[in-house]
């Protein structure tokens, strides 16, 4: 028998899958971005159901409220035309796609099998009460190095994106 919690969870999960599927299958990049917003909001709702209110809020502010807004803005400025096909064809690129998907599934499965029990104990340690304060303490003491390393990773990605866009063929290419 389903409890009301289960019903809400499965509805949200279904909707998350639907919008995530929409991101990859819509032919127009703008619709992809709008589907991405829906997926972000849905994931925020799932965080709320887990009692992680702070992460839900940050998810909304950072991803839905800022990052995807920038995506949509850039897409509108470039006025990209509707692609004729949702997927590009090609044997080699198809195999690469399958390989990447397989790798991602593998990573997900490994994480689930190996860290599910550790995550449960850590979650129990943190507890539902005052989780914001404890999260901040964990982030800025025990996990400081990882936290800062991720921010450097984002910087590297940004520099890489600029470098790639200035190569030939890009919209900002030095002709």
């Amino acid at each position: 028998m389903f409890s009301s919690y289960d019903i809400v969870f499965y509805l949200l999960a279904l909707f998350a899958l639907f919008s995530a599927f929409g991101v990859v299958t819509s032919a127009s990049p703008i619709y992809s971005a709008f589907f991405l917003v829906l997926a972000m909001m849905d994931i925020a709702c799932l965080f709320v159901m887990l009692g992680a209110f702070f992460i839900a809020g940050v998810q909304l502010i950072v991803y839905a409220g800022a990052v995807v807004v920038l995506f949509v803005m850039v897409l509108m400025l470039f006025n990209l035309h509707q692609e004729t096909e949702a997927f590009s064809r090609g044997t080699i690129s198809g195999m690469a796609k399958l390989g990447v998907t397989g790798l991602l599934c593998g990573i997900l499965a490994t994480t689930l099998f190996h860290f599910a029990s550790t995550a449960k104990t850590i979650a129990a340690e943190i507890g539902p009460e005052e989780s914001t304060e404890k999260l901040a303490k964990l982030l800025f003491s025990d996990y400081l190095f990882g936290f800062e390393a991720i921010s450097i990773l984002i910087l590297v990605v940004a520099v890489g994106a600029v470098a790639l866009s200035q190569l030939k063929g890009g919209t900002h290419a030095k002709s």
Partner: peptide
């Protein structure tokens, strides 16, 4: 809402989408 400030800031940051949708 336990984290009222965060909730209001995050929800009102979604206001940009209606404008973007209208514009596009």
């Amino acid at each position: 809402a336990g984290l009222g400030i965060l909730f209001i800031l995050s929800v009102s940051s979604l206001g940009a989408y209606s404008i973007l949708m209208a514009g596009y």
